[in-house]
Design a protein around this nucleic acid. Structure first.
Lengths: 346, 346
DNA sequence: TTGTAGGCGTTATCAG
DNA sequence: CTGATAACGCCTACAA
């Protein structure tokens, strides 16, 4: 198949439809004051001659660039699986609005962010890996660029975000354990150490765990681990040796489980007969484990998609500055599968 | 800190430096015919008043958009870890050239690709998840957009790519096993079944495995698996039950190993005392396993970066059409760690 | 309801 | 070596 090399412009559309440029532009931007008749006629022409717009020109002339930035700081640690889920979700969603995604992975000093925005011509941004106190937020607010966070910072007043209700996640997981009779519970959380609370969810999960344990008389043992196989095994080992009465383990990522299980097997322990496990993870992942994991839902791809969706819809509603911030806290649900069981009285 | 809201344009630079727009534009684009003196003066002014360019305007006027597309078709299967490595590598590299990355994850019919390119204003593209016969390639060639593949299609004449030399990877892995005395070798490869050879690397690895086995008198047992924990365990089970003499396993991804190990432990087998393992994987991953994996290097992040690098350098060299295609085949290296050992004669 | 003119920030083509 | 000037494709007043 051979493609015409020349771009189809609104001028072509206008000529073909027998109207002026501005009229075409109006229907393009859904402005009022265009008769239904011409509107449909123009749309048909666009369809026929294959008009597909030029976002750069549009943006130059004062319109939208239909492009959002995805700020994704790289770091060695970080759960790759989860990150890709967010990215793919956001990308898919953006495409459905005919928006483009600009991936930005640099370290980003304030000035760099400013320049990026200035010369990237973006309409908004998604912040990934949001930290409790995140320098990017001030900058974005100063510039006045609409943005939504995946995750949360400390003071979210006036900010937009999509996040999982991590406190609730911990609560329902522990409630489930309690119902099954487990009172000695290990918790493998994320981080280089328990003091590493740069991420809000780490602080929230750790805090919630401690709190629920205290309130419910659970004997909890918490250990931090990075995302690699070796670290997870060591974390599990620590639970087994330092809190040998443990009968249930809660962990923040389904992907950790094979490594956890490995450490357990070394001690001759099976899931769930000897030890029960709950993971906070994507259903898909939980489902594909063996045994299938009892899990608290963490719909990461959907969350990425949602972040893009609310951002773009905000951008599209240009009368924007009195929009109240949309803060989406995903309500976690426990799905009972095969990795947990009632504690047998010995 | 407060930022000026107005954009700094080349006009500002020109006025400030006491020259015309065109002169500024010339130094911006490294054109000849500008005296060293004015060149440095202009550069200083740009630095001082914080000029950072407007890629959209530049592109409109006939310059580069300094943006490349990253075509990443989503599918349920596919090793997320690996994919993110490619993406991050490419992104990092692009940023070092002041290029932007546009993520494109839709399914992409020919027309969609064409439209995407037309209205995205990109200078080039990286193709991820390249298939043996990949519809995107024809389209891109027709349009005349420079692109480089990560992976390979069938007929690579005239095409640019970055790929691992998978045949060699298999060879050196099996050679290593042979040296250690292993002659009954299992191979866990990727795919829904052995007939699923849509990806070149699957065909290459599977083919190479068969060939080397035949030539070297290895008794090989090959089994395909998708990337999830459950599937990998089942694949391992099959090897253990259907080819119980197996003393060594070769697999294409380090991330598979915890699940493989789990299946082995169920049969009371340890790595490496009972069974040796080699994975084709990123050094980092191999290093973080327990025991650290003997691996064939698969520098995925570096490959993504390299793809972006050669693409962008090609774009920057505008006298481009007599450039001979750059085809990079990464030479795999075996790194001996702790997951392989000499076969003891019983 | 529709058309006209000016401009967005940059590059390319000409003249000087 | 340097400076005007006309595009690039689109949007937004303002005019009709």
């Amino acid at each position: 198949m051979k493609w015409k090399n020349s771009t189809v412009t609104i001028e072509d559309v206008a000529r073909e439809a027998g109207v002026s440029l501005s009229t075409v532009s109006r229907v393009l931007n859904n402005k009022p004051d265009v008769s239904e008749a011409t509107k449909t006629r123009i749309r048909q022409v666009m369809e026929r001659i294959g008009y597909s717009g030029h976002r750069f020109a549009s943006n130059l002339a004062g319109g939208l660039s239909r492009t959002i930035a995805l700020f994704l700081p790289i770091s060695e640690s970080g759960i790759r699986q989860l990150i890709l889920d967010f990215v793919l979700g956001a990308s898919k969603s953006a495409e459905s609005y005919d928006f483009l995604i600009n991936l930005s992975t640099n370290a980003m000093t304030e000035i760099e962010i400013h320049n990026t925005i200035q010369n990237s011509q973006i309409d908004g941004a998604i912040l990934m890996r949001t930290k409790i106190s995140d320098a990017r937020i001030d900058v974005l607010q100063n510039i006045g660029l609409p943005f939504v966070m995946i995750g949360r910072c400390k003071d979210t007043a006036g900010l937009w975000y999509v996040d999982l209700d991590f406190q609730r996640s911990i609560e329902i997981a522990l409630e489930h354990f309690l119902e099954l009779g487990h009172t000695h519970i290990g918790f493998i959380t994320y981080g280089k150490g328990l003091w590493e609370e740069g991420y809000t969810y780490v602080r929230l999960t750790n805090g919630a765990f401690k709190e629920v344990c205290k309130k419910s008389g659970i004997s909890g043992f918490m250990v931090s681990s990075e995302g690699n196989a070796q670290a997870i095994r060591e974390a599990t080992e620590r639970i087994l040796t330092e809190a040998p009465e443990t009968t249930a383990i809660l962990t923040v990522y389904g992907e950790f489980v094979p490594s956890i299980e490995l450490a357990l097997m070394k001690h001759g322990m099976r899931i769930p007969s000897d030890i029960s496990i709950i993971a906070i993870t994507e259903d898909k992942t939980a489902h594909q484990m063996s045994p299938p994991l009892t899990s608290v839902t963490f719909p990461s791809e959907k969350m990425g998609a949602l972040a893009a969706k609310i951002l773009i819809e905000r951008i599209l509603l240009k009368s924007a500055y009195d929009i109240s911030p949309k803060q989406v806290l995903i309500n976690p649900v426990l799905v009972n599968r095969k990795s947990t069981t009632r504690l047998l009285v010995k």
